[in-house]
Design a protein around this nucleic acid. Sequence first.
DNA 1: GTAGTACATTCGTCGCTACGAATATGTCGT
DNA 2: ACGACATATTCGTAGCGACGAATGTACTAC
Lengths: 145, 145
Amino acid sequence: MQTNTSAPAEPPEATLASFFRLLGQPVRIHILLAIGRREVCVCHLEAVLGQRQAAISQHLMQLREAGLVVSERSGRHIYYRLSQPKWIDLMISAAAFFGETDWIAQALSLDPVPGCCCPECSATPICPRISETDPVREGTENKST
Amino acid sequence: MQTNTSAPAEPPEATLASFFRLLGQPVRIHILLAIGRREVCVCHLEAVLGQRQAAISQHLMQLREAGLVVSERSGRHIYYRLSQPKWIDLMISAAAFFGETDWIAQALSLDPVPGCCCPECSATPICPRISETDPVREGTENKST
DNA sequence: GTAGTACATTCGTCGCTACGAATATGTCGT
DNA sequence: ACGACATATTCGTAGCGACGAATGTACTAC
């Protein structure tokens, strides 16, 4: 399932356009940046993007079918990572054409997210679901609405 | 969109996504490549892309409003060129991620087109409208299927 | 086994967009 | 002036895509 398994009958400009169309949605750009150079679970993206699980999952499906991301199950969680780190580079260089790259660095450096349940976010005491077993904090992290 | 005086209310990822969405259409990629590093008129693009004039014009309007192309009238013709040649570079580098760049070089090297009426294409004897002094065209409206 | 969690998938709907048709605008030639 | 031409613009429509709701699937804990 690499990047070239689909539609070799497609003209190359259509292939390139499909790729650009994938990136033509802010939420998918955000997903790719939130994944960044590490592995994140869906609930992590859900917390970062503030979108419903189904929507996230649908975007991930498209990115997966396009070969931009790969997924791997680990217990109850499914971790996503970029199939190749060069997608980040492409977005950085594209953003550089507009003179703005700081926000990308910020998005890439996003770390543990309140509301996420994955072990990586649970390393901090802000994740309520993990801290059920270890109630160091009781819901002190209601930051918005 | 010139990313300047007015309209930074948009988050940067939306700006980038808008740019990618513009390139997410094969016909617009084709337009940009057909323009390439020179100036072409609309009838040229019409002949190259095989699309109706209105459709071409609408795509050009979007590319113009996004600041990717600029237009300049010269007599009855309006010539379009890329606002900056780096858009070509971006597409080449993006295509390189897929390992295919030959078709871009081919599209860029496209020269006079049969069916185009602009002076550049009329340098060759294949343009019928220029040869209207030589009335070979009677009812040659080839909306042939 | 059942219940609960994390995620995927299907379906329906709404909004956006690409295209065709028609019309308007600007330019040249007469 | 007028008509022909090149292009822009408006409008209507059809198709696609994004999202929500509901449901299905895989895994864990009990």
